[in-house]
């Protein structure tokens, strides 16, 4: 792992081990994420990237190893003890995970109301602003079932961003989106980082997206951090595992 001089570590993961259905998915994964950067986590499908991301917000507890957010070790905390850390973070789920009984506006307003905002004019203004940010203004009254996959993902992004988290976790933010919407999501992630200093961890397979948004890239391979470095270092690498991934080569017979 390459060492860099950075202001402070927002997330530190040490020797994370996780087993699912008897199979060891993470085998001592370690990683540091620094204040204000965008880190892209690459890896093959089913390799444990999403599982890793879920540990960062306490949705899964590791078999062993530690996850530290800011100064607090969150691995091993009880559900209610995690609330404080979770309030400073946001997460975009792979399929959006919108509340299907609520309208778009109510989904986006949900975190505001849950954190005690009772002034409906403030809620409305913030919802409008968040939906404008993801190009979905005017869709407030729609139900999630009437939205396309890309729209759902963008509503979910608005919901995650409405409380201005200090750290955002994105699980495949551009998967299943057309190239134009995917690019707009990439630019939004970049804009949030530049304007608000949001630290982002992005799980993706999308190499174009990676080279657009990443300050650092980590490659998860066989349960461990196989590569950590900048985009330039990734491009320049001659390691066959990295080259196969970057160039999308399978070695299967045609």
């Amino acid at each position: 792992m390459t060492e860099h001089a950075h202001p402070s570590e927002v997330i530190t993961v040490e020797n994370l081990v996780q087993t699912i259905g008897g199979q060891e998915i993470l085998r001592g994964f370690s990683l540091k994420v620094y204040q204000g950067e965008t880190l892209v986590l690459l890896g093959r499908s089913g390799g444990g990237k999403s599982v890793f991301l879920r540990h960062l917000i306490g949705l899964m507890q590791p078999v062993s190893g530690t996850v530290t957010v800011g100064q607090e070790v969150i691995s091993g905390l009880q559900e209610r003890e995690l609330a404080k850390v979770r309030r400073s973070m946001g997460m975009l789920f792979q399929n959006g995970a919108l509340f299907d009984s609520l309208t778009v506006a109510d989904n986006v307003a949900f975190p505001l109301r849950e954190r005690g905002e009772t002034d409906e004019s403030v809620v409305r203004a913030k919802v409008e602003e968040a939906l404008q940010m993801v190009d979905l203004a005017g869709n407030e009254g729609k139900m999630p079932v009437n939205l396309s996959g890309g729209m759902r993902k963008r509503v979910a992004l608005a919901r995650a961003l409405v409380n201005q988290p200090r750290c955002m976790l994105y699980d495949e933010p551009t998967a299943g989106l057309d190239p134009i919407v995917a690019d707009s999501i990439d630019l939004l992630i970049r804009r949030l980082q530049r304007k608000l200093g949001v630290t982002s961890i992005v799980v993706t397979h999308d190499m174009k997206s990676t080279f657009t948004i990443a300050d650092h890239v980590a490659l998860l391979h066989e349960g461990r951090c196989y590569f950590y470095g900048t985009c330039d270092q990734l491009r320049a690498s001659t390691d066959p595992v990295i080259r196969d991934f970057v160039e999308g080569r399978s070695h299967d017979e045609p």
Binding site: G58, L82, M91, F93, L98, F99, P111
Partner: peptide, 9 residues
């Protein structure tokens, strides 16, 4: 959706 609730504290 349950995970989304948990992620939203």
């Amino acid at each position: 959706q349950l995970d989304a609730l948990r992620a939203l504290a």
